[in-house]
Each structure stands twice: as C-alpha cells, then as structure tokens.
Design a binder for these strands. Structure first.
Length: 869
DNA sequence: CCGAATGAAAT
DNA sequence: ATTTCATTCGG
C-alpha cells in the first residue's frame, strides 16, 4: 500500500504484501533508543524484569532461535513461520559506524541549526564524518563492529536483507503503528505472553512486549552485554591496536557464545520457559519485588525491598523537590521520578488505600496540580490525590517530569547519598538533577566502565542535607565549579582538557542532547527539551550544560524497592497496567545487574548510570514512551547506550559555534564544553590535504558549504594558530584534517552516486552550480545560521588562541564569508565570486543572505584556491 | 513515508 | 555494480 513501492510499513500490521518490510525488525538494539513509542506504557515491564532475571527465560524463542541459528535454516525467517513473530522479529540491522556517529551528533547539529532538517543535518554530519580524525572514526568503527558482532552472535543467521520473505504479516495490530519500533514486542508476547498475559490483563492491549520482548531482550541484551563487555574491556585494554576488534571479537565471541548458548539453550524449551514466564508474570508479579532483584542479579541483592522509600524523606528534600518542580522537568531524573512516583503511590496506597482519583483536571492542570499535590503530600498526608497523580502521570508522564521528580523526591526520600557528580553540569538543572539522583540513588556507585573510567569520580560530596535549593549551589561548588559556566568552564577545560574531553562522554549529556528526539512533541521541540521548564535559568545555559555534561545518575536500589512495593500494590489493585509505565521506568532504574559482567565494568554501573540518568531522563520526560524502549531493551539497550555514549562527541563548535562569542561574552552558552578534545591540530601539510579534500568534495558536489565545511575551512585556517590554542582546542579540534590519508576512504567527497530515482536533484542549475533545489534547500536555511556560526567559529577559534583570525572576521561582521577567510585567499577572487553570487542571489533572496550565500560560494572558491596552492 | 548520508551485506 | 537497510525527523 502506500504509495511507495515497498512500503509496507504502514501497514505494519497489515501485512504486507509487500516485500520485506522492514518492519519486522526486532531491534534489539540498544541504541535504538529512540524509537519508542509510546505504547510502552502499557506493557508490563515487570515481566521483563522477571524474565530477565531468570536466566533462561525463554521466550526467547524467537530470540533464541535466532540466536541459535536455527534450527536450521535460516533463522529468522523461519520464525516467521512459527510465530509470526518471526516476521516481526527480524532484528534491525546494526548500525554502522557512520550511523552511530550520526546518532550521536545529530542532536548537536540540530542544536546549532535548529532549522535545519534532518537531511541537512545528515549532510553536515557526513561532512564531519569525512573530516573526522581517523582515530576518532576508528572508535566509531570499532564500536560498530562490536555491535555488529554481538548482533550476529545473537542472531546467527541474520541476513541483512531479508529473504524475501514473507512479509510480514503479523499484523500486529497497531501496536506499532509508527515504526515498528519494537517489533518484537508483539510477537513474543504472543507466545509467551499469551498465556500469561491474558490474565492480567488488560494490559493486553497489545503488545506488549511486555513479557516476551523483555525477555528476549533480556536474553539478548545479556548476550550482547556480555559480548560487549568483553569487547569493551579488551578494547580498553588495548585500545590502541587497530585490530583490536578482532581480538576483541573473539573474546567477545566466546563470551557471547556462551551467553548465547545459554540463552539459546533455552530456546526450544519454550514450553518450559513459557511456563516459567507465565509464572512469573502472574504469580511473581506480586512478589516481583524480590524476585526480580534476586533472580536478576544474583549478586545484587535485592534484599530489602522497599526500604528506602519509606524511610527518609527529609523535609529538606521536599523543598528541593519543589524547587525542582519549579524548574520544570529535568530530564535526568526521570527515572528517579518515576520511581519516586511509584514509591509515592505505593505509600499512598498503604496509607490511604487507593482512593478515587479524580483526575479531572486537564492535563495542563495536571502538572500544576501535581506539584501542589506533591507538596501537600509531603507536608500533610498523602491523599488520594496521589493516586491521582499516578494516573495523571500515566497520562502524561512526560510532561510532568519535573513535577514528578519533585514528588519523587519527597516520597521516596532520599537515601541520602550524596553523590553528586556532575562533572560538568552547571546549571540548576544539574544541581537539581544531582540532588535528585543522589537521593534517589542513594547509592550511586561508580560509574562506569572502563572506557569511561577516567572521569568518574563521583565524589560525593558530603551530603549536607539538602537545604533546599541551596543544596544545589553547594553541591555545585563543592564539585567545583563546573557550573561556573562561563568562566569556569573555560578554565576547567584548560585545566584538564583531557579529562574533560574524554571521549567518554557524558552519557547523560548525550542523552540530553538527544533527547529532543523524543519527537513526540513538536511543539516542545528543542527549546523545551533543552530548556528547563523554568524560564529562569537561561535556557540556553541549561541546555548547554545539559549537553555539556550531565551525567546520569542512577538509582538503583531504592527505586527498585520502591518499584517493587509499588508494583505489588498495583498489581494487587489491578492498576498495574496503568502503572506499568512507571514501573518500567522504575525498573529500568533499578536495573539490575545482569549478568555477568564480568569485569563488571559494564554491568551494573553502566546501566545504572545509563538508565536513570541518561536514557530516561529526557526521553522519559517527554514522552514516556521512550521508556519503553528502554525497558524493552533494557539493559542491553542501556549498555549499548552507554557505550554509545562513550563515543566521543565533538562539539559543533568545532565546526562552528554559533554562539556568539561576541554576543555573550561568556561562553557560557555557546560553549559547551562538550567537545572533546581532540587536540588535533594540523600541520600545514595536513591542512593542505584537507583543503584538497574539501575541494574535491565541492567539486563533486557543489553543494553548499554547509556549516561544516566552513567550519572546517575555518578550522583549517585557524588550525595552525589554534594549534597552540589547544586548550581551547576543544573547538577546533575535533576534526582534524589529518585524515586524509586516504586510507579512510574518501568518502566524504564523493557522495554516493545518486540512485536513479534520486537523480533528479542532481540537475545543475544554469550557473552550473548545483541544482537550486539542493543549494537552496540546504543552503538557505542554514545559511543564516551557518554564516554566523562560521564566523563565530572563527571567533572562537581566535578566542582560543590566535587572535588573528578573530580580528579579521570580527571586523567584517557583515560579510562573513569574506571576512572569515584568511587573507591569503585572493580577495579579488573572492570578491568576484561574491559579486556574482550576490547578483544572482540577490534577485532571489532579497535580503538576507545574499551574503551568506555568496559566502558559500566564496568559500568554495576559496577552498579551491587553497587547494591549488 | 521520503529523503540525505555512509556503510555493510546481499544480490 | 547495484540495491537494501540501518538512524533521524522535518516536510
């Protein structure tokens, strides 16, 4: 249907006749995080957990099957036969290095160029990728490989292209209408779930992957994890050697294999498994609390179930919470929030028993209401309202994120763990988050994994008790000022660029940045996402900060506990369904340990961290939907995520920073320290190469320069200068020209030839330039921003070190293009170009940008010139 | 749902 | 050599 040829998508359920729809994929992947839909709410996550916990869960049939490879034959496909699942099941192919890169940086790009659409962003990303330092690239490549390997292990026979197959079928009812995000859910559930689920119920609505998926996920994830884990470790150890991958792989493989085996071992036994599951689902549910934890992690002991929640809850906290609320939603804490909510709910129940929940208020009101409630609850008693809250939440968890958090805090009571970490967070947000985390987490552990290792240090500050918001400041301070934002940041960077830079990245931050992806709310869009609810703080700052680093936080036990309790309650009450979402989150938060983890590095910590902070945070907030993804994927996802996060993220600044250094003096906004580090500098020769490259690129595609390019150019120019500026280097650094060697592939320049169908856009304009469409499309929108940004970049660069660059550009604010370019380009040439451009464009675009465009042209020319030189 | 990009795999 | 599909998300 649909127009498109293959389309099957929409029909998701629909079967398809179509060819292979992509839909079916299971997507085990971790990263996929985003997808998520919303349905997640419904499902019961618990099951997942439980299942997960059990080692062999089972359901996995599909999974296992795949893993096994089947029983013969082609794995996946077959499934289909068995269950339809197969159809759905098909896992999505693992992302390649570039995709990983895109995923990681797209948000940044978008941040810079809000107006730019994804296509444009993709282009930029491609450019970045092209110039990315080989080393950096290698990281992504390795990860991709790793990912792929793990994936393959998990799905032995996986074919990138589905055998024609059947199509999909499986109409899953709508579950995924959108994308199929979680295909698997549907299926598995069927098997396993079927039995159990029904009873429960209502939840049923569909999907669910509740059990099945999770289960699977669990299995997979474990596998993956293990594999990754192994790999990672290895990688870390020998990060240097290129071949690492292989070795790692092997190692990983074995581990994975084992895991796989384990899991697969179960496969057939579906029955048994199923039974188990079923059990779990229902029976266990009630008990869930303990069981999951226990089973899940042997190590971790779930032990005390809900202790935390009840306990603490200092008044102070409450105040904090309020503050939090005020701020709006923070992302990070989402998980916490949920947890809190859960806790709260549970408490409430206990106390009050369920009460009616009015819920009348409209959503909007809800938030407010909630806040109020929260407060009230704290002080006085939990009222029925709380439940209301739950419901509301349910309805719109996302929106309320902030509020909920607050609630959470109060409810759960912070265990008091003081940990704050935050490397860099600066803004209130951070502090808030930290606080929350701390509370929630209680124990936060270490973070992570080997790769990231360096940074960690969560040094807890002592927890002074949270004096309301003040805590925040204190915290910050104590931590050291990361937040200082402006000034401080710089300094910090200077101090330890390296650390800061560490590729590792900030999981949290990342997410934040990405979060926006939530997609659900367009309106909210970036701003909201980024910006904290409360206006007060500068939104930008927050963003930056967030982006900059927020880390995650994790809360495990407490949440878990809470969750368990809550869960129980809910279950008993039947609310489970509704809560499910929450639970998820909670669950997620709790994260269990999972497996192995051999070294452990990955394991708990990672996810812990990931989970709460990172992943959930934003996403959840906005939509809860996201959760699901998380839940579904669960740890696996998280791990990947974590790993993913560990990948270095380069700041756009590098390329271009919009910011405005000028505008704000502070770099605060503009700068985000995000980027790493890469010192990079290029030698002249390198530069030259770079230019060549660029030139070539342009030749091939004349497209617009895109920010990147410009940036690059700028960079190149500045580079030398910058070199010293290393400190700052941050900005410049990222990409370094070096790469060219060619080894990498020249990809950048030559974009893949257009497919026949696409060719259209290739048409050349009269001038010879690219077709207007292209040029315009990308160019225009970006132009404005780009231009400035470019300049900015320069400025920044300059700032960093050399003033030369700056000076020039600064002067000519007007003509960015020209100004930016270094003197050495022939002005005349530039001028001509510009003139031409202007003329042409002028007609078109009247105002604005004529320059901008011209600039582009100019740059191109310039570049070319350079090349020649 | 297409598309822009890169890459891996399949055909 | 070409085609699929993975991720993103605005049109």
């Amino acid at each position: 249907m649909k127009s498109g040829g293959r389309g099957a998508e929409p029909p998701v359920e629909g079967e398809v006749s179509g060819k292979r729809p992509k839909r079916k994929c299971l997507q085990w992947h971790p990263l996929l995080s985003k997808k998520t839909l919303d349905f997640s709410e419904d499902e019961e996550e618990d099951d997942e957990e439980e299942l997960e916990k059990h080692p062999p869960p089972f359901c996995g049939k599909s999974l296992s099957q795949e893993a096994e490879g089947g029983v013969g034959t082609e794995e996946e496909e077959d499934d289909g036969e068995e269950e339809d699942s197969s159809s759905e099941q098909r896992a999505r192919r693992p992302m390649n290095a570039f995709l990983l890169f895109c995923k990681r940086h797209r948000s940044l790009v978008r941040q810079e160029h809000p107006r730019l659409d994804n296509r444009g962003a993709t282009k930029i990303l491609a450019d970045w990728w092209a110039v990315l330092d080989p080393k950096e690239k290698q990281k992504y490549t390795d990860m991709a490989k790793e990912y792929k390997d793990a994936f393959m292990k998990a799905n032995p026979g996986y074919k990138w292209c589905p055998p024609s197959n059947k199509s999909v079928k499986t109409p899953s009812p709508g579950a995924n209408s959108r994308k199929k995000a979680w295909p698997f859910s549907s299926e598995p559930p069927r098997d396993c779930a079927a039995s159990k689920k029904p009873a429960k119920a209502e939840s049923v609505p569909q999907i669910n992957f509740s059990m099945a998926d999770p289960t699977k996920m669990g299995g997979l994830s474990m596998l993956l994890l293990a594999g990754e884990h192994a790999l990672t470790a290895r990688e870390i150890a020998s990060k240097k050697s290129p071949s690492v991958a292989d070795s790692a792989k092997q190692t990983g493989t074995s581990d994975l294999c084992q895991l796989v085996e384990v899991s697969s071992g179960t496969p057939q036994p579906t029955t048994a498994d199923t039974a188990t599951e079923g059990k779990v689902s229902q029976a266990d549910l009630s008990e869930i609390c303990p069981s999951p934890g226990t089973s899940r992690l042997g190590a971790t002991d779930p032990t005390k179930p809900c202790i935390d929640p009840p306990v603490p809850r200092p008044p102070e906290v409450s105040s904090c919470s309020q503050a939090t609320v005020a701020e709006g939603r923070l992302s990070g804490p989402t998980a916490l929030l949920q947890l809190a909510e859960m806790c709260l709910a549970s408490e409430a129940k206990k106390t009050v028993t369920s009460a009616p929940r009015p819920r009348g208020q409209s959503p909007t009101a809800a938030s407010t209401g909630i806040a109020t409630e929260t407060v009230a609850g704290e002080q006085a008693t939990p009222d029925p309202e709380e439940e209301e809250e739950e419901k509301k939440r349910e309805g719109r968890e996302a929106a309320e994120g902030g509020a909920s958090e607050g609630v959470v805090r109060s409810a759960c009571g912070p265990p008091a763990k003081p940990c704050k970490r935050s490397p860099s967070s600066e803004s209130d947000l951070e502090s808030l988050i930290d606080t929350i985390d701390a509370v929630a987490k209680g124990s936060w552990g270490a973070e992570d994994d080997g790769e990231e290792v360096p940074r960690k240090k969560p040094r807890p500050l002592s927890d002074p008790g949270f004096p309301k918001r003040k805590s925040r400041p204190n915290a910050r301070k104590s931590i050291k000022a990361q937040e200082e934002e402006e000034a401080e940041e710089e300094e910090e960077e200077d101090h330890k660029p390296v650390e800061a830079c560490v590729p590792i990245a900030f999981p949290g931050s990342d997410r934040e940045g990405e979060v926006p992806s939530v997609k659900a709310e367009p309106s909210a869009s970036a701003e909201e996402t980024l910006a904290p609810p409360s206006p007060l703080a500068t939104p930008m700052k927050d963003e930056d900060k967030a982006a900059a680093k927020l880390e995650s936080f994790g809360s495990r036990k407490s949440e878990r506990t809470c969750k368990g309790a809550l869960y129980k309650t809910l279950v008993s009450e039947g609310m489970l369904t509704s809560l499910r979402a929450n639970v998820d989150r909670g669950r997620r938060a709790s994260g269990r340990g999972n497996v192995s983890d051999l070294e452990g590095s990955w394991a708990e910590e990672s996810w812990t961290f990931a989970q709460s902070g990172a992943s959930s945070s934003k996403k959840l907030k906005k939509l809860k939907s996201k959760d699901e993804s998380a839940p579904g994927l669960g740890r696996l996802e998280e791990e990947f995520e974590k790993k993913f996060n560990s990948l270095p993220q380069y700041s756009p600044l590098t390329f271009d920073r919009k910011s405005t250094c000028v505008t704000k003096k502070k770099k605060s906004c503009g700068n985000r320290a995000e980027d790493p580090p890469k010192p990079v500098r290029g030698s002249p020769s390198q530069k030259k190469n770079l230019f060549h490259k660029i030139v070539g690129k342009y030749k091939h595609r004349k497209e617009q320069p895109t920010t990147t390019d410009k940036a690059i150019a700028a960079q190149a120019l500045t580079t030398p200068l910058a070199a010293q500026g290393a400190t700052h280097g941050g900005p410049c650094a990222a990409l370094y020209p070096e790469g060219l060697g060619g080894a990498e592939t020249l990809v950048g320049s030559q974009k893949r030839k257009a497919r026949k169908r696409k060719i259209t856009h290739l048409v050349r304009a009269a001038d010879g330039r690219l077709s207007p469409a292209e040029g315009n499309r990308a160019g225009e929108p970006q132009d404005q921003e780009e231009k400035p940004s470019t300049q900015t970049t320069l400025c920044n660069n300059a700032r960093s070190g050399p003033q030369e660059a700056c000076a020039a550009p600064a002067d000519t604010a007007d003509r960015p293009g020209v100004s930016g370019l270094p003197a050495f380009f022939s002005l005349a040439a530039l001028a001509e170009v510009a003139a031409m451009e202007n003329v042409q464009r002028a007609q078109h675009t009247a105002r604005l940008p004529a320059e901008g465009q011209s600039k582009e042209m100019v740059q191109n020319h310039v570049l070319i010139s350079c090349g020649d030189q």
